[in-house]
Structure formats: C-alpha cells, structure tokens
Computed example of a mutant assay.
Amino acid sequence: MRSFSYSSPGQIGDASDAARESGAQIIAGGTTMVDLMKIGVIAPDALVDINGLSDLEGYAVAGDRMRFGALAKMSTVADDPAVIDAFPALSESLWKAASPQLRNVATLGGNILQRTRCPYFRDTAYAQCNKRNPGSGCAALEGGETNLHAILGGSSACVAMYPGDFAQALIAFDAEVVVSGAGGERTIPFSQLHVQPGDSPEVETVLEPGEIVTEIVLPVVPAMANSTYLKARDRESYAFASASAAVGVAMDGDTVSDVRIALGGVASVPWRATDAEDSLRGQPLTEETAREAGRIAFETAEELEGSAYKIALGADVVAGALMQVKSRMGGE
C-alpha cells in the first residue's frame, strides 16, 4: 500500500470539493476501500473520510416514504424492529450480506457502491481485466473460470457480477438515491445508478467526480410488508450469492395485484425482473405461477460455461421466495 493523504471534512461541500481532486477516493466504513487498497487494485493519492458528516447517519421508516442516510450502519438498520416489520426484505438483505463485524461498520451508501468480487478484477496478477485496466481484455471470457460471473447484463468486454444484496431490495421497490456534488443536489432513480459494462466496464455508476450519496429514499407500498430476500450461497454463515431474489407481493383477494422481483448474484448490475413480475399480476400465486415467473426471469440469460447452473438455481430461488412470502401471508 503506497502513501496517501487523509482528510475528514465536517461539511458536505468540503467533502465533495476534496473528493473531486484527481486521485482522491471517498471512504466511510472502509470495508471495501481498505480491502481493495491492501490487494493493490486501487492506490488513491488521497482518502476523503466522510464519517464526520453525522447528518447522514439517520433514517426514518414511518410515513409514505422511507429515508435512509448514506452513513447509517448496516447492522443498525437490519436489526431495527420497525424496519423488520415494515420491510422484511430490506432487513434480510442487510443481515445476510456480511458478517456481524462488517455490518457493524459498513454503511448503506458504501454497500450499494461496492465493487465486483470477480477474481480477475481483484487479482492484479491477471493483466487482462477491462474493468481494472481498460482495453486489456477479459480473462474470464478468454479461457478463465466463469462460475462466479454474470449471465444477465454482461458484454463481450466484461461479465463481472455485481455482488451486493441490499441493492436488490432497493431496485425492486423503486428506490432513489440523493447525491450532492459541485452541481448541487440531484436525485437519481436507483435503477439508473449502476451502468452495465458495455464497451466501458470501468464506468460503473453515473456519479460525477466528487458526488457523494447522501440519502436513499423509497416510496412505501403494500408489497413491502409482504416481502423477503432469499439467498442461495456456498455456505450459510457468510458468502456472496450464487443466486438471490428480493420479492414482495400484494394481493387483491386471491390474485396478485402487485409484485416486485429483483435478482442478485447473476447480473452485472442490480437487476429487476419486470417480465417475471408482469407474468404474475392478475394471477393467483401458486407453485405453478411462481415457477413460471422464475423461468421467465431468466429467459434472456446468456449462458456461460461455468455459470450455466445459475439459470436453474436462480429460477428456483425466485419461486422459493414467492412461495415463502405466500406462506408468511397465511397461504397454503
């Protein structure tokens, strides 16, 4: 790890100004940033610590919009009884995302901006990584292992998988992120925050230099109360998803009036399965319709040699999550 300067501004404007400087990186909980610095993937000239922006630590669940400050800790939000009651999928996506030690220091804002776990991105011994070294190629697609890679939203330049869990609960329920930077404050639909790799895998979000995520906002809808986050992984204690699904359902009698489905562990960005949702609206929620929704969710998947298993697994996870919600609502 090479030398770098360090600052801890107390005002959002000062933090944004410092973060716009060439070679600067923002740090909050540090659970991703420090890790990447230690393994040599990034080497910033300056770290801008935003933990002094204490106004960004609060959150509120009551009312018609949930609001979460970007510096709220994962563990604090996941364990809050009000969150658990109002939005189970959000709580579950947080406590299933990391070990207790990490959740105690990791922030919501940092979590949604975490970098891929692609082994070729994180191991600098591999020169071929278009995300880390633009134009160098993709080791995964050039004879490498692809069991951890994306089958949705990838490109010929990159099939790195977005690794987060919390993001699936956000994209499924129409979240927005508020950011602050040189141009003032703006609100970005969460579905537009992350960028599919295309020909420029090094560009991961639409954030401008110096922009800081300050708040995450979600409109409250009935399907939030009947929601869950189901995660299939190699080990139960702490691992990234092989396939996961955040789902929520609202019923009108015996038929589905609203449904939300987002996929994790399988795509290059947080992924909402809108076609699968459309297949369920106006239908009864049964094992048959849930499995059909799971199948539809992966209709456009592009099979890779090492990660073809994710198609069947992902479909099962979607169906399982939907039936889990039905069970919680008292259905058979």
Rank of each mutant, 00 (worst) to 15 (best):
C138P: 01
A267Y: 12
A290W: 02
L313M: 12
C158V: 05
R122F: 11
A43W: 03
G320V: 09
D123N: 14
A78G: 02
T274A: 13
P44G: 08
A19S: 11
S279D: 08
M33D: 10
I296F: 15
E277L: 05
V266I: 07
G135R: 02
R272Q: 11
D64E: 15
F87H: 05
A246S: 12
T300P: 04
I50F: 10
A276H: 06
A169P: 05
D199H: 13
A301P: 03
T124M: 11
D17I: 12
F298K: 09
V83A: 10
P163H: 07
G137L: 01
C138G: 06
L102Q: 14
P119Y: 15
I42W: 02
V34P: 03
T300Y: 11
I171P: 04
D64F: 01
L71W: 01
T255P: 00
Y126A: 06
G183M: 01
R260H: 15
H194Q: 11
Y120D: 03
C129G: 00
E305A: 15
M37H: 08
G23L: 04
R233E: 11
L71I: 03
H194T: 09
Y229C: 05
D275C: 00
P9C: 12
A72V: 12
V259E: 04
P270R: 05
G320F: 11
R65P: 00
L193E: 13
G153F: 06
Q101E: 13
S5Q: 12
Q128F: 00
D79L: 10
A262F: 12
G198S: 07
L108W: 04
D123V: 07
V317E: 07
P81A: 14
A125S: 13
C158N: 04
V317Y: 06
V318Y: 02
T228E: 00
V83Q: 09
R272P: 09
E211V: 10
P119A: 13
I311N: 04
A246N: 03
A241H: 00
V77C: 08
G23D: 04
V105I: 15
A169I: 08
C118P: 06
A19R: 00
V325C: 10
H194D: 14
I216N: 01
R272I: 04
V206A: 06
E145H: 10
P9L: 10
Q128E: 15
A290Q: 03
N147M: 08
L207F: 10
L36Y: 13
S22I: 01
T32C: 14
T107L: 09
D254V: 11
N133P: 00
A89I: 01
G331H: 06
R67Y: 06
V61F: 12
A172R: 03
V203N: 13
S75I: 08
E142A: 13
P163N: 10
L304S: 09
A86Y: 03
L113H: 11
A24S: 15
Y162H: 15
L90Q: 03
A225H: 05
A225S: 12
E202V: 08
I42T: 11
A321T: 05
M161Y: 02
W95C: 05
V325K: 03
G264I: 14
A301D: 10
V177W: 04
G40D: 11
P197V: 12
H194M: 09
A160N: 06
